[in-house]
Amino acid sequence: MLGLYLHRDSAVHRLPAGAKMGGLLLLTAVVLTLPGAWGALAAMVAGAALLAAARLPPGRVLRDLRAPVVMLALLFGIQALLAGTGWQDAAIAVARFAALILLATVVTLTTRVMDMVDLFERLFGLLRPLGVNPAKMALMLALTIRFVPLLGDLVREVRMAQRARGVERNMAALFVPLLVKILTMADDLTAALEARGYDPADTGSQR
């Protein structure tokens, strides 16, 4: 699975995932604390600059942004029409979040899924004192990525089978066989992991 990553040869792409996520968090905090429209403006400028530096096609980025922006605009429109008062505050709030969504989209488009997953694993390592096992989290993330397409096929398959039997819109008829299949798959997959030497008692401290 390639994810939403868009490959370009740029300094933004080469930045480590941790730096990008850290930067995003920091900018989010700054934007939300700066009074008035300044935060939104600053984030917009930063977002546009990063977009250019990452050599991402603006058309594609705008397409990704269309849904949230249209929704925000729509909500804002209704708001302005109905309420009348306080629309400047609403406008600022919308602009702030539109800018933050732009920044976040830049991070997503320039960072490979696996780099992001690696970052999560390192962060889970920090949570070890709380009883989090980073090796298990890493295995579960990998298993999930592996099984999403398979489950997608399974959903389609079960739906088709039900349709063939004339059951068109009955969601219950979809989910019972789907769950039964998943629970059998779980048995097989557990056996396969253990047959290949996976031992859940391993702390995975060595990586």
Binding site: A142, L143, D188, L189, L193, A195, R196
Partner: peptide, 14 residues
């Protein structure tokens, strides 16, 4: 070593 019937539930990594 153990090889199962259905490869789909044996391949665990993407």
């Amino acid at each position: 070593g153990f090889v199962f019937q259905n490869p789909d539930t044996q391949i665990v990594y993407p």
